[in-house]
Design a protein around this nucleic acid. Sequence first.
RNA 1: AGUCCUGUAGCUCAGUUGGUUAGAGCGCUACACUGAUAAUGUAGAGGUCCGCAGUUCAAAUCUGCGCAGGACUACCA
Length: 930
Amino acid sequence: MNQPGTYKPVKDTSVVAMFKVKQDHASEFLFKDAFGEVFILAWTTTPWTLPSNCALTVGPKLDYVRVKSFNPYTHEPQTMVLAKSRLGAYFKTPTGSSDGGEYTAQALADYKKDGKNIPWKIDGEFYGHQLEGIRYEQLFPYAQPEGGDAFKVIGGDFVTTEDGTGVVHTAPSFGADDMRVARQHGIGTLTLVDLQGRFTTEMGEFAGKYVKNEYYINGQAPEKSVDVELSIKLKEMGRAFKVEKYEHNYPHCWRTDKPILYYPLDSWFVRVTAKKDRLIALNKTINWKPESTGTGRFGNWLENLQDWNLSRSRYWGIPLPIWRTEDRDEELCIGSLKQLKEEIARAVKAGVMKEDPYASFKVDDMSDTNYDTVDIHRPYVDNIVLVSQGGKPMKRETDLIDVWFDSGAMPYAQWHYPFENEATFKENFPANFIAEGVDQTRGWFYTLHAIATLTQDSVAYKAVVSNGLVLDKVGQKMSKRLGNAVDPFKTLDAYGADAVRWYMISNASPWDNLKFDAEGITEVQRKFFRALFNTYNFFALYANIDGFDGTGEASLTESDRWILSRLNSVMKLADANYADYEPTIAARAIQDFVVEDLSNWYVRLNRRRFWKSEQGADKNAAFQTLHRCLEMVSMLSAPIAPFFSDRLYRDLVGTSVHLSDWPKHDDVAIDIELEQRTVLAQKLTSLVLSIRKKEGHRVRQPLRKMMVPVTDATMRKRLDAIRELVLSEVNVKELVILDASESKLTKKIKPDFKKLGARMGKLMKSVANTVVGFSQAQIAELEANGSMKLAVEGQEVELLRDDVEITAENVPGLSVASDGALTVALDITLNETLIQEGIARELVSRIQTLRKERGFEITDRILLHIQRNGNARFEEAVERHSGYITAETLALTTDQQLLMDTLEGVSGGVQDLDLEEGLSCRIALSRVVR
RNA sequence: AGUCCUGUAGCUCAGUUGGUUAGAGCGCUACACUGAUAAUGUAGAGGUCCGCAGUUCAAAUCUGCGCAGGACUACCA
């Protein structure tokens, strides 16, 4: 029953059966002015249990009514008892009746006995406890119950009126509630079904039939199940009130898929309910991931705790170590082999056993060879007969222990504690964390917790991760039957363990269900692993060229300090989230750092320092910074990508990352202000690039200036700090900071709803509308005075400067873009100088591409000659920027030789280049032999 | 039947104490950029924040009732 999928929705024949009330002192009030015979209605989804009925259970505090009506099958007049709140389920309100009411006495008399619009009338209302003690006639008198006074109405607090009639047909043989309530009232039991699921011989025409058609061998099941046959019989007897198919969840065998029958069996229980409060209290100290499983599913389970039924009727497993006398007066639970041998010795002495079957076992010898000499499983233990204190023979209880007990006993059993290894056990208990599927809530998670609470008064684990399921990519459960199961080995072979794991961890938290889609793995490979690999390759390429060895004086730049600040922020975040069993948040932070911060920003902006600048403190700083970042990323990602990170770390450091100590972040290196102004720089860059795109100016074309209006000192300071960075990134010559008070700016005003809402309450909407409609003059007034009075809905309110956000929206005459409060204006007018510089850049770009195409090494020097093309602007651009061109392209050509009338006689392949619309040139390029 | 989880763009997911223009990546379209990068940038298209009702000046967010998918389960007549 602990297997998934045991409960399935099935349609069964359900019956509302009519139990005929016996007229006596207790039932007299039901017979007063009765209409035909008097019945109590009870509903069942298992009609096959009706012959075993022994009692009817009502809710003592529930309201019941007496209804006069007709039998829908025989049309005989009759009086019926059921719960008041269930009336609507069985009696239709007459058409035309507005008060939800009943038929009139006249309607009852006029009934045509055609089964249509059956009239009914309530006549009397009472509590359930008034029904208790009433006797009724047995429905199917095939056999009589034993050991009690059956066929009466009893009270039970488990009765509800959610469905059925509010009266529970009670067959103590088939249900725990029924058994319990029947015992309380001394009802006795009647079991007309055998352990194979067939009716017993007493059952007359039904004898030998299986109670569930599913139990028959394929093809041999009768057309009508006994449920249907019994229902027909009830109709014929005039004892059926309603027969219909009813869909409900019913438990099935996990192995054969067949419906399960409940039988009362004697069982041994662990009385966990005695420690319920401790179980609940200790659970509250466990770090559940997710928390809701601990408080919800598991917490609710503990609140409704039942005793642990330890018995299992199987052959293989751990035998119950309980011996008992035949009269059940004396019993003994054995706690160790040592004790067992002592008891066997007593038994041998008393003569109930001939010899000790475990004679070869040496007490206190914990070696495997010693334990290998004995077998304490069935059938050997079943042959052991012990002797009680009173001298009577005791035999072992034949049941086995629930295998979940083994799982829960794992922390002790693995060390053979308490027989040895006490120190080791205490060092390792309780566990720091465990992880298993969420379906183990009532399984492993519970048994560990129960046994630890009962035996150690402790939790068994400090944290528990309850993993969700891996579903297929459309969210269906994977199953071999549906053919949508992913082969883990093929997947690992195809994508590698690291990529698969990184995908699984970064995509969804372990406790969320994962929709597994292999395309997600390739995305992880493409984004994270390739970015990391490329960044390392970049580093290695230049580090090898320059012979970087990690030493040397280094002077950190702003962007070095920035990436190190980001690195330490990520280390802090990742560390905290790993510690809190939130690997998904950690993985995403690491991935974003590598892809966005390190690869797309730091390396892109700093690559010139690696391949262009002179050896020295600046270059050292760049190498050391990048090395540090890669080293830390490898350590941070080691728990999720153990292979890739180890290779990376070995290449960087020379040893295994898995032998390194977990890195600790450095708070001093974290500079939030620096990180924030870099975000500003990134936003500004985006805005300028967006204007360039809009205006059709390529990034290689330098522009004169950009302007940024600022409203506060912090912003001004930040802009000053990032000025050079932004200018070089967007290829603009000058950054002008505009004071917000400058009149030529137009401004936009927006209410700060959070602040304003708190003060304005219901006036909020009107105030907001007024504010949005402000003129430039009104905005200026508010800025100047810091506050202003508004008349809204006949009331005067005061608007404060802080209640609104004022941003510069536009700079007249310039091309503008904005993102939230940030606005940039770009001067896009060009002059000859800028145009020529743009041409030079364009030329360099083409030559670099050519170098690459020809397969030159990065460090190769070249000879470069450019043929005059008669375009004065182009030739002037080359002459003016000759130094820049030769330096960028690693050309050894002198400035005088760069621009030539003809390329004849010059070494190297000649190539025509298109620079831009209507401008092309011819160059000669050759590699200088080293 | 109950308990719990999930539901936001075509897909995978963020979304803070409720704050008014709901975001990212992938995918798609166009353009640009590039001597680390099959990378990247910019722009565009793409939303009933599962539905309904309520609370509130204000709801993806809080409450209730539902719907859909998933998991589990002592009783379940």
